[in-house]
Amino acid sequence: MEHHDNQQHLISYGTYITVWLSLLILTGLTVAVAGVHLGKYNVFIALLVAAFKSSLVLLYFMHLRYENRLFHAMFLVVLFTITVIVALTYVDTLAR
């Protein structure tokens, strides 16, 4: 069982470099967009880009894409927990 389980999935050097380039482009994009005044939407765009960047890091650099379902499920649980915590706190602070 150990042998099959511990099989490494090889990702090509090219993939890593492509991901890195996309991350740099997204960084440029988020800096550029921050200069444009969009009022409330600025923060949403910034967070959206950051979320996109972090999913690239998670999926490729951290190999989450190639791990089994357990890792995906665990990660979603954490994401969900944070969302719940922030949302329920907002129920208080935004309504106060």
Partner: peptide
């Protein structure tokens, strides 16, 4: 995870949060 606010009913939380 969803219920921690019930320790704070009298601490000045928003009414909405208290009900929720």
């Amino acid at each position: 995870y969803l219920v921690w606010g019930h320790h704070m009913f009298t601490s000045g939380m928003a009414d909405l949060a208290r009900v929720v």
